[in-house]
Design a protein around this nucleic acid. Structure first.
Lengths: 144, 144
DNA sequence: TACAATTAGATTGTACACAATTTAATTGTG
DNA sequence: CACAATTAAATTGTGTACAATCTAATTGTA
């Protein structure tokens, strides 16, 4: 029995990695009518809860840095979903706000979470457990 | 109560997405001495179990297509970890095998799974549950 | 046996990710 | 107040991801 722990089937991280990508793949058609990607959808989720947020705070919520967010937000701006403006109080800060189109997208997105959940075939208990364990893991890994 | 389901905290997919990225970030230092990325590590995991595999079968195991694998395997070939050869029986097929260096890397990698598990702070029950639920989800999302 | 259909990889183009560095603005301290 | 240290974004460079398309080899069938 050589290196049992190095077998793909014994990994925790592999199903995590693979399921995430399959998940984004399944989101694609759901997001197609909004013409956005899954990470862009996450940005919108944040903005729908709290319109006007700095790139830094957005990054903190989504665990993304400016290297990812800056070009992504520029693309979203080109698609007229958000607007980026320098804060007048602190010129270093860029604030992101929704455009009218970005706000309206919320209506269209309303059914997406449920539509996706149906695809997963997870029951409520599993879905709750998954959420809880991932949150714990994320919390642990995310901090120093 | 407006669009409760669209809140970031109520999403299943967001912690999945974020935890996966934090996970790869944590793997980076563990893989640094091997000078490989996490996806490349997965390729090695497969090859350590079964040396010589076609790009197609590798892709089936890892849920990756040739658009991702071809350039990645070329990089791994440049780093002298694997070799790619056209099958003589079917010239369409490219087979991937380990180099000596690629084989030796297994020894160095031996402790990585355990090292990572310690970082997660998950107990065995949680880790098993996570694995089980993700496998179910992956299985469901991956087919069709 | 021709040859259309299929198959395996490679290629192209777009969009993340993220480490590392740079730039510009702000803050803290002597 | 001067100016070093810090901070927020932007930039650069590398490496995935993946849809869509292309190329070459193989297969199935008229």
């Amino acid at each position: 029995m050589t290196k049992e722990r190095l077998k793909l089937d014994n990994q925790i991280c592999f199903p995590l990695y693979a399921a995430t990508r399959e998940m984004t793949k399944r989101y694609r058609p759901l997001l197609a009518e909004l013409n956005i990607t899954y990470p862009q959808y996450l940005v919108l989720l944040v903005l729908w809860e709290k319109d006007r947020i700095s790139v830094k705070d957005l990054g903190k919520k989504l665990y993304l840095d400016s290297g990812t967010l800056t070009p992504m937000l520029k693309r979203m701006e080109e698609h007229d979903l958000v607007k980026r403006t320098r804060s007048t109080e602190d010129e270093r800060v860029v604030e992101v706000i929704l455009t009218k189109k970005g706000k309206q997208a919320e209506q269209q997105a309303e059914d997406i979470p449920l539509q996706f959940l149906e695809l997963t075939n997870l029951n409520e208990e599993e879905s709750d457990q998954l959420k809880r364990i991932l949150a714990k893991m994320l919390n642990q890994l995310g901090e120093e």
